[in-house]
Nucleic acid binder design. Sequence first.
DNA 1: AAAGATTGAGTTATCAATCTTC
DNA 2: GAAGATTGATAACTCAATCTTT
Lengths: 173, 173
Amino acid sequence: VPGPLSFDPIAEARRQWEAHGWADAAAGMAAVTSVMRAQQIFLARVDDELEPFGLTFARYELLVLLLFSRRGSLPLGKIGDRLQVHPTSITNAVNRLVEQGLVRRVPHPTDGRTTLAEITAEGRRVTQRATAVLNERVFRHVGLAEAQLHRLFTLLEELRRTAGDFDERGPGR
Amino acid sequence: VPGPLSFDPIAEARRQWEAHGWADAAAGMAAVTSVMRAQQIFLARVDDELEPFGLTFARYELLVLLLFSRRGSLPLGKIGDRLQVHPTSITNAVNRLVEQGLVRRVPHPTDGRTTLAEITAEGRRVTQRATAVLNERVFRHVGLAEAQLHRLFTLLEELRRTAGDFDERGPGR
DNA sequence: AAAGATTGAGTTATCAATCTTC
DNA sequence: GAAGATTGATAACTCAATCTTT
């Protein structure tokens, strides 16, 4: 990962957009690009802290989902819905977690087609320790004040809803 | 990519964070996770529009950088700095772009170690057409009003600066 | 020795096709 | 036939090691 630049490359791109007669799309371009770069930064920081646990953010998210589930287990398909990733990725992630002893595959009690992923005792321990580290070293020092964090969340929430990420039909499902 | 949920999974996670006594990290967690999800959504939309051109967002960004450069060419290392990706990724992307006839490798005039990537005439045409499509179909309809887009950009700009993505030392490099 | 770029190994994500169960 | 999950093939990214030029 290279060193810092002496200017903001995204602000520079926005200037170029305006100079080329695309002013009406410049704000959208800058917003999209900013989100891309911010994700890159966050992912690097998070994965860096998770590396000692042998986890990636994708696998960590899966573990948290199981940890917070009522029975400590969920059908693979439901996990894919929540995390918005393809079934294949879930299969892969679960394979890795099983190898690591953090998750176990359990047949669904009534539906023979579906498989449940169940978090193990070790999985619970690791997830809690990893969460403590992430909270301490990343989530508490994101680089914005509390009020700004909330505004950021609200803006992106609106954006995600507009994109059809979730509907506002009340709880359930 | 699965269908929409009937609730916001990130708001749900934030509730869980607070319920588990991690309230001081909940806002940061929600912000980070929101950025991750927003990036996922944007990348899918952008890559979808770029697919007919045989491009990915990574390669498109590289082409735009060359298109806007003074001579239409840049050293590979400088491209890596601007795009914040590893040298290997640049080599890979340039290889693909050369195969596609959109970029050409040129030896640096004075420094025998460095290679320049130079955009071809075809590369310019493709980049401009792809940009027109992205502007029309993605950047103009991000899902937020102009004022909100600007706030989002400003928040993320602050965040990127805090993260050391760039310094405020005036222009130049 | 250091900068710049490339190669090869390992990891992860994605897509189409397959298999089992409903 | 459709849902749920897995397999095999492909593409992209990352890391360590290598090679050339300075």
